Amino acid sequence: MNDELVSLSELRLAIDAAFSESSNDVSLHRFLASRAKTMHRGIGFGDGDQVELLQEFVHRYIKQVPDVLAHFHKISLAAGVEDELEAFLHIAIDYFLQPLEITASHRGLLKIMDAAYLAHRLIEEVNDRFIGNAGVSISPIDNTEDNVVMHFLIGESLANELDLAVHYSVEMLISQNALFSKQSLMLYVEAQKQNQRKQQSVYKEESAIRLALNRY
């Protein structure tokens, strides 16, 4: 398997194309303006226009997906579980290239926003399984809080349906007995635990994909 999936290049192109085609589209701004009016008080912002901050958050949330997936793939190679995790990477990419029917009502960046949520949630769920079963994280970021914000923006009904789609994919594809007992993964986990503090520092430096939205 190549160090970076060929389909990741397609994903980057698809995201760039979506932003280019939507450069003069105000539908996302209008959508976020309506959501900002009902924003949960637990989600705070820094100074500035609230809708503009939300839009910047959404843009960064979408654009970081390829980097997160690339790093996830890199870790799967290092742990020798690329064959087991490749299906998840392709599912995450297909969310963009072949959107789910339940997102059919959205267009442009709104549809890409849905796909980004699916991809981030998929990585979050797989990573949670690794933490629970192996005691280590294989994701370059903790995207839990950002996913909560995006869940609100997408809307409870649709977001819950997307969560179910992610949960179903994870349940269908992860075989815990086969994956978490694999010798290469066990060796990787042992090495990570021995050097956990140093490794966490490296991950933070390498990923450089922190969102700009400040929450207090």
Rank of each mutant, 00 (worst) to 15 (best):
S27K: 09
K204T: 10
T144Y: 11
P99T: 05
S137H: 06
I15H: 04
H167Q: 14
V81S: 06
L89N: 11
E82T: 15
F31E: 01
I174E: 08
A78K: 15
D47E: 14
S169K: 06
R60W: 07
S27H: 12
T103W: 00
N2C: 05
A115D: 12
R129W: 12
H59F: 12
V189K: 08
E21K: 11
R12E: 14
Y61K: 02
E125S: 15
F19V: 09
L13P: 00
E82I: 13
F96E: 05
Q176A: 14
G108V: 02
F130Q: 10
V149S: 01
S27G: 04
E4Q: 11
G108F: 08
H29F: 12
L187G: 03
A18L: 10
L28E: 07
A104N: 13
S207Q: 13
I112M: 11
I123R: 10
R30T: 11
V51I: 06
H29M: 10
Q200G: 06
G44H: 03
M39R: 01
A87T: 15
S7G: 02
E124P: 01
I141F: 06
E82V: 12
S34Q: 14
G48L: 03
H120M: 04
I174P: 05
V170A: 04
E156P: 00
L118W: 09
E156Y: 00
L85G: 07
G46I: 00
D142I: 04
V148Y: 13
M150E: 07
H40A: 02
R60V: 03
N143S: 11
K111Y: 00
K198E: 13
E56P: 01
L213T: 01
A87L: 14
I131K: 15
L185Q: 04
S7R: 11
I112Y: 09
